[in-house]
Amino acid sequence: MKPAPVAYARPTSLTEALELLAGTPDAKVLAGGQSLVPLLNMRLAAPTLLVDINRLPGLDHVMAAPDGVHVGALARHSAVLADAAARRTQPLLADALSHVAHATIRNRGTTVGSIVHADAAAEMPAVLAVLDGHVEVASVRGRRRIEARDLVVGPLQSSLEHDEVALEACFPALDARAGTAFTEISRRQGDYALCGVAAVVMLDEDGAVASARCGYLAVHETPAVVDLPALVGARGPLGDDVVTAASDLALGVLDVEGDIHGTAAYRRHLVRVLTARALRTAYDDAATRTTTRTTAPTPTTGGTA
Protein backbone atom coordinates (compact mmCIF):
# COMPACT_ATOMS: atom_id res chain seq x y z
CA MET A 1 0.00 0.00 0.00
CA LYS A 2 2.63 2.48 -1.10
CA PRO A 3 2.01 4.62 -4.16
CA ALA A 4 3.91 4.10 -7.39
CA PRO A 5 6.56 6.71 -8.12
CA VAL A 6 4.91 10.07 -8.68
CA ALA A 7 6.24 13.60 -9.08
CA TYR A 8 4.89 16.19 -6.72
CA ALA A 9 4.49 19.92 -7.17
CA ARG A 10 3.10 22.46 -4.75
CA PRO A 11 2.55 25.64 -6.78
CA THR A 12 1.83 28.91 -5.01
CA SER A 13 -0.08 30.58 -7.81
CA LEU A 14 -3.04 29.49 -9.87
CA THR A 15 -1.19 30.30 -13.09
CA GLU A 16 1.64 28.01 -12.09
CA ALA A 17 -0.80 25.26 -11.15
CA LEU A 18 -2.65 25.52 -14.44
CA GLU A 19 0.56 25.42 -16.41
CA LEU A 20 1.63 22.28 -14.60
CA LEU A 21 -1.70 20.65 -15.34
CA ALA A 22 -1.56 21.72 -18.98
CA GLY A 23 1.95 20.30 -19.31
CA THR A 24 1.19 16.86 -17.88
CA PRO A 25 -1.84 15.10 -19.34
CA ASP A 26 -2.16 12.54 -16.55
CA ALA A 27 -1.51 14.92 -13.66
CA LYS A 28 -3.90 14.81 -10.72
CA VAL A 29 -4.99 17.67 -8.51
CA LEU A 30 -4.43 17.04 -4.80
CA ALA A 31 -6.57 19.01 -2.37
CA GLY A 32 -7.88 17.13 0.70
CA GLY A 33 -6.65 13.81 -0.62
CA GLN A 34 -9.34 11.78 1.12
CA SER A 35 -10.21 9.85 -2.03
CA LEU A 36 -7.09 10.32 -4.12
CA VAL A 37 -4.50 9.24 -1.56
CA PRO A 38 -6.11 5.85 -0.86
CA LEU A 39 -6.37 5.29 -4.61
CA LEU A 40 -2.68 6.10 -4.96
CA ASN A 41 -1.72 3.87 -2.04
CA MET A 42 -3.63 0.93 -3.46
CA ARG A 43 -2.05 1.69 -6.83
CA LEU A 44 -5.49 1.98 -8.37
CA ALA A 45 -4.38 5.37 -9.68
CA ALA A 46 -0.84 6.11 -10.84
CA PRO A 47 -0.57 9.67 -12.17
CA THR A 48 2.91 10.90 -13.05
CA LEU A 49 2.39 14.23 -11.29
CA LEU A 50 0.46 15.43 -8.28
CA VAL A 51 -0.37 19.11 -8.31
CA ASP A 52 -0.98 20.01 -4.68
CA ILE A 53 -3.20 23.09 -4.68
CA ASN A 54 -3.19 23.59 -0.91
CA ARG A 55 -0.86 26.59 -1.16
CA LEU A 56 -2.96 28.44 -3.73
CA PRO A 57 -4.27 31.70 -2.28
CA GLY A 58 -7.91 32.69 -2.04
CA LEU A 59 -9.54 29.32 -2.50
CA ASP A 60 -10.61 28.42 1.01
CA HIS A 61 -13.68 30.65 1.20
CA VAL A 62 -17.19 29.73 2.30
CA MET A 63 -19.27 32.71 1.26
CA ALA A 64 -23.00 32.99 1.73
CA ALA A 65 -24.27 35.47 -0.88
CA PRO A 66 -27.83 36.28 -1.94
CA ASP A 67 -27.55 33.94 -4.91
CA GLY A 68 -26.21 31.06 -2.89
CA VAL A 69 -23.28 29.58 -1.03
CA HIS A 70 -19.94 29.84 -2.79
CA VAL A 71 -17.48 27.21 -1.61
CA GLY A 72 -13.84 27.53 -2.61
CA ALA A 73 -11.79 24.57 -3.75
CA LEU A 74 -9.81 24.49 -0.51
CA ALA A 75 -12.74 24.86 1.88
CA ARG A 76 -12.92 21.75 4.04
CA HIS A 77 -16.21 19.99 4.64
CA SER A 78 -15.96 20.89 8.31
CA ALA A 79 -15.64 24.60 7.51
CA VAL A 80 -18.69 24.51 5.26
CA LEU A 81 -20.61 22.52 7.85
CA ALA A 82 -19.75 25.00 10.60
CA ASP A 83 -20.67 28.09 8.60
CA ALA A 84 -23.90 29.51 10.05
CA ALA A 85 -24.58 31.85 7.14
CA ALA A 86 -24.16 29.02 4.66
CA ARG A 87 -26.60 26.93 6.68
CA ARG A 88 -29.17 29.75 6.63
CA THR A 89 -28.74 30.39 2.93
CA GLN A 90 -29.05 26.74 1.87
CA PRO A 91 -29.91 24.39 4.76
CA LEU A 92 -29.63 21.31 2.56
CA LEU A 93 -25.89 21.80 2.40
CA ALA A 94 -25.29 21.35 6.13
CA ASP A 95 -27.95 18.64 6.40
CA ALA A 96 -26.12 16.57 3.83
CA LEU A 97 -22.62 17.42 5.03
CA SER A 98 -23.32 15.98 8.44
CA HIS A 99 -23.60 12.61 6.67
CA VAL A 100 -20.24 12.92 4.90
CA ALA A 101 -17.86 10.38 6.43
CA HIS A 102 -16.45 11.26 9.86
CA ALA A 103 -15.10 14.38 11.52
CA THR A 104 -11.48 13.53 10.81
CA ILE A 105 -12.22 13.09 7.12
CA ARG A 106 -14.37 16.24 7.01
CA ASN A 107 -11.51 18.18 8.58
CA ARG A 108 -9.30 17.44 5.60
CA GLY A 109 -11.59 16.55 2.73
CA THR A 110 -12.84 19.39 0.56
CA THR A 111 -16.40 19.85 -0.61
CA VAL A 112 -15.35 20.83 -4.13
CA GLY A 113 -12.96 17.88 -4.29
CA SER A 114 -15.78 15.53 -3.37
CA ILE A 115 -17.94 17.04 -6.12
CA VAL A 116 -15.42 16.70 -8.93
CA HIS A 117 -14.46 13.21 -7.74
CA ALA A 118 -17.94 12.47 -9.15
CA ASP A 119 -18.77 9.55 -6.90
CA ALA A 120 -22.45 8.70 -7.32
CA ALA A 121 -22.52 7.40 -3.75
CA ALA A 122 -21.25 10.68 -2.28
CA GLU A 123 -23.54 13.31 -0.81
CA MET A 124 -22.18 16.53 -2.32
CA PRO A 125 -22.54 15.77 -6.04
CA ALA A 126 -26.19 14.82 -5.48
CA VAL A 127 -26.85 17.94 -3.42
CA LEU A 128 -25.29 20.20 -6.03
CA ALA A 129 -27.34 18.43 -8.70
CA VAL A 130 -30.69 18.63 -6.96
CA LEU A 131 -30.13 22.33 -6.31
CA ASP A 132 -29.12 23.04 -9.91
CA GLY A 133 -25.81 24.39 -8.73
CA HIS A 134 -22.67 24.79 -10.74
CA VAL A 135 -18.90 24.60 -10.59
CA GLU A 136 -16.41 27.24 -11.77
CA VAL A 137 -13.35 25.72 -13.39
CA ALA A 138 -10.14 27.15 -14.78
CA SER A 139 -7.42 26.09 -17.15
CA VAL A 140 -4.72 27.84 -19.16
CA ARG A 141 -7.43 28.14 -21.77
CA GLY A 142 -9.59 30.28 -19.52
CA ARG A 143 -12.47 29.87 -17.14
CA ARG A 144 -15.83 28.28 -17.60
CA ARG A 145 -18.89 27.31 -15.65
CA ILE A 146 -20.15 23.73 -15.60
CA GLU A 147 -23.76 23.23 -14.59
CA ALA A 148 -24.29 20.43 -12.08
CA ARG A 149 -26.42 18.48 -14.53
CA ASP A 150 -23.48 18.40 -16.94
CA LEU A 151 -20.82 17.70 -14.36
CA VAL A 152 -20.97 13.98 -13.72
CA VAL A 153 -20.86 11.98 -16.92
CA GLY A 154 -20.27 8.49 -15.55
CA PRO A 155 -19.07 6.55 -12.52
CA LEU A 156 -16.22 8.61 -11.02
CA GLN A 157 -16.10 10.61 -14.24
CA SER A 158 -16.58 14.35 -14.30
CA SER A 159 -16.71 16.55 -17.38
CA LEU A 160 -13.64 18.50 -16.29
CA GLU A 161 -10.82 18.34 -18.83
CA HIS A 162 -7.47 17.00 -17.68
CA ASP A 163 -5.99 20.49 -17.54
CA GLU A 164 -8.84 22.02 -15.58
CA VAL A 165 -9.08 22.62 -11.89
CA ALA A 166 -12.32 23.38 -10.08
CA LEU A 167 -12.10 26.69 -8.24
CA GLU A 168 -15.49 26.95 -6.64
CA ALA A 169 -18.87 25.30 -6.29
CA CYS A 170 -22.00 27.36 -6.01
CA PHE A 171 -25.03 26.00 -4.17
CA PRO A 172 -28.04 28.19 -4.99
CA ALA A 173 -29.85 29.76 -2.08
CA LEU A 174 -33.05 28.25 -0.80
CA ASP A 175 -36.02 29.77 -2.58
CA ALA A 176 -38.76 31.49 -0.70
CA ARG A 177 -41.51 29.00 0.17
CA ALA A 178 -39.15 26.07 -0.42
CA GLY A 179 -38.19 23.38 2.01
CA THR A 180 -35.50 20.74 1.90
CA ALA A 181 -34.66 17.40 3.44
CA PHE A 182 -31.76 15.02 3.33
CA THR A 183 -31.94 11.43 4.44
CA GLU A 184 -29.78 8.42 3.85
CA ILE A 185 -29.29 4.87 5.06
CA SER A 186 -25.76 3.62 5.46
CA ARG A 187 -24.46 0.43 7.04
CA ARG A 188 -22.38 2.28 9.63
CA GLN A 189 -22.45 5.90 10.56
CA GLY A 190 -20.29 7.76 8.06
CA ASP A 191 -20.23 5.02 5.43
CA TYR A 192 -21.23 5.64 1.87
CA ALA A 193 -25.00 5.40 1.70
CA LEU A 194 -26.94 2.38 0.47
CA CYS A 195 -29.44 4.95 -0.68
CA GLY A 196 -29.72 8.67 -0.03
CA VAL A 197 -32.33 11.20 -1.00
CA ALA A 198 -32.13 14.99 -1.08
CA ALA A 199 -35.52 16.61 -1.58
CA VAL A 200 -36.54 20.14 -2.46
CA VAL A 201 -40.23 21.01 -2.27
CA MET A 202 -41.60 24.43 -3.21
CA LEU A 203 -45.07 25.57 -2.22
CA ASP A 204 -47.36 28.01 -3.95
CA GLU A 205 -49.03 30.89 -2.15
CA ASP A 206 -51.86 28.63 -1.02
CA GLY A 207 -49.55 26.07 0.56
CA ALA A 208 -49.91 23.44 -2.17
CA VAL A 209 -46.88 21.89 -3.83
CA ALA A 210 -45.69 24.04 -6.72
CA SER A 211 -42.73 21.88 -7.59
CA ALA A 212 -40.84 18.95 -6.09
CA ARG A 213 -37.69 17.15 -6.97
CA CYS A 214 -35.41 14.58 -5.43
CA GLY A 215 -31.72 13.97 -5.86
CA TYR A 216 -30.56 10.38 -5.38
CA LEU A 217 -27.21 9.02 -4.34
CA ALA A 218 -25.90 5.47 -4.47
CA VAL A 219 -28.82 4.12 -6.50
CA HIS A 220 -27.75 5.17 -9.97
CA GLU A 221 -24.42 5.30 -11.77
CA THR A 222 -24.44 9.09 -11.50
CA PRO A 223 -26.11 11.46 -9.04
CA ALA A 224 -29.67 11.41 -10.36
CA VAL A 225 -32.22 14.20 -10.15
CA VAL A 226 -35.86 13.36 -10.61
CA ASP A 227 -38.52 16.05 -11.06
CA LEU A 228 -41.81 15.04 -9.55
CA PRO A 229 -44.68 16.77 -11.37
CA ALA A 230 -47.04 14.21 -9.82
CA LEU A 231 -46.76 16.12 -6.57
CA VAL A 232 -47.86 19.46 -7.91
CA GLY A 233 -50.98 20.61 -6.16
CA ALA A 234 -50.60 18.16 -3.29
CA ARG A 235 -51.06 19.39 0.26
CA GLY A 236 -49.71 18.15 3.51
CA PRO A 237 -49.64 15.85 5.15
CA LEU A 238 -48.57 14.15 1.94
CA GLY A 239 -50.58 10.99 1.51
CA ASP A 240 -49.24 7.53 0.73
CA ASP A 241 -50.64 7.72 -2.80
CA VAL A 242 -48.71 10.91 -3.46
CA VAL A 243 -45.36 9.67 -2.21
CA THR A 244 -45.86 6.31 -3.89
CA ALA A 245 -46.45 8.07 -7.19
CA ALA A 246 -43.25 10.00 -6.59
CA SER A 247 -41.16 6.92 -5.92
CA ASP A 248 -42.72 5.17 -8.91
CA LEU A 249 -41.48 8.05 -11.00
CA ALA A 250 -38.04 7.87 -9.45
CA LEU A 251 -37.73 4.11 -9.87
CA GLY A 252 -38.68 4.56 -13.51
CA VAL A 253 -35.59 6.70 -13.94
CA LEU A 254 -33.09 5.07 -11.62
CA ASP A 255 -31.01 2.11 -12.66
CA VAL A 256 -30.55 0.55 -9.23
CA GLU A 257 -27.82 -2.00 -8.82
CA GLY A 258 -26.99 -4.18 -5.86
CA ASP A 259 -23.62 -4.72 -4.24
CA ILE A 260 -22.21 -6.58 -1.26
CA HIS A 261 -23.88 -4.18 1.16
CA GLY A 262 -27.39 -4.37 -0.21
CA THR A 263 -29.29 -6.06 -2.99
CA ALA A 264 -30.90 -4.07 -5.78
CA ALA A 265 -34.33 -5.09 -4.42
CA TYR A 266 -33.47 -3.72 -0.99
CA ARG A 267 -32.13 -0.49 -2.43
CA ARG A 268 -35.24 -0.05 -4.57
CA HIS A 269 -37.24 -0.54 -1.39
CA LEU A 270 -35.10 2.12 0.28
CA VAL A 271 -35.78 4.47 -2.64
CA ARG A 272 -39.47 4.18 -1.76
CA VAL A 273 -39.01 4.56 1.97
CA LEU A 274 -36.56 7.45 1.75
CA THR A 275 -38.38 9.27 -1.04
CA ALA A 276 -41.48 9.31 1.15
CA ARG A 277 -39.52 10.40 4.23
CA ALA A 278 -37.59 13.10 2.38
CA LEU A 279 -40.61 14.54 0.58
CA ARG A 280 -42.69 14.68 3.75
CA THR A 281 -39.90 16.31 5.68
CA ALA A 282 -39.18 18.77 2.87
CA TYR A 283 -42.89 19.61 2.57
CA ASP A 284 -43.15 20.21 6.32
CA ASP A 285 -39.97 22.27 6.19
CA ALA A 286 -41.40 24.41 3.39
CA ALA A 287 -44.70 24.77 5.21
CA THR A 288 -42.96 25.81 8.40
CA ARG A 289 -40.76 28.33 6.62
CA THR A 290 -43.72 29.77 4.75
CA THR A 291 -45.71 30.09 7.96
CA THR A 292 -42.78 31.67 9.77
CA ARG A 293 -42.25 34.03 6.88
CA THR A 294 -45.88 35.10 6.63
CA THR A 295 -46.06 35.82 10.35
CA ALA A 296 -42.97 37.98 10.05
CA PRO A 297 -43.19 41.17 8.01
CA THR A 298 -41.07 39.81 5.18
CA PRO A 299 -41.98 40.87 1.65
CA THR A 300 -42.64 37.99 -0.69
CA THR A 301 -41.28 37.95 -4.16
CA GLY A 302 -44.58 37.30 -5.83
CA GLY A 303 -44.61 34.66 -8.55
CA THR A 304 -43.84 31.04 -7.90
CA ALA A 305 -41.65 28.71 -9.79
Binding site: M42, H102, R187, R188, Q189, G190, D191, Y192, I260, H261
Partner: peptide, 16 residues
Protein backbone atom coordinates in the same frame (compact mmCIF):
# COMPACT_ATOMS: atom_id res chain seq x y z
CA UNK B 1 -12.26 -11.30 -1.63
CA UNK B 2 -14.45 -8.36 -2.60
CA UNK B 3 -14.25 -6.41 0.63
CA UNK B 4 -10.58 -6.48 1.57
CA UNK B 5 -10.52 -3.03 3.14
CA UNK B 6 -11.94 -1.25 6.14
CA UNK B 7 -14.20 0.65 3.77
CA UNK B 8 -16.09 -2.47 2.78
CA UNK B 9 -15.40 -4.87 5.63
CA UNK B 10 -17.69 -3.32 8.17
CA UNK B 11 -15.96 -3.45 11.52
CA UNK B 12 -18.31 -1.59 13.87
CA UNK B 13 -17.41 1.94 14.90
CA UNK B 14 -18.18 3.25 18.34
CA UNK B 15 -21.41 4.55 16.78
CA UNK B 16 -22.56 0.98 16.12
Amino acid sequence: LLNASFMDFLMPYVTE
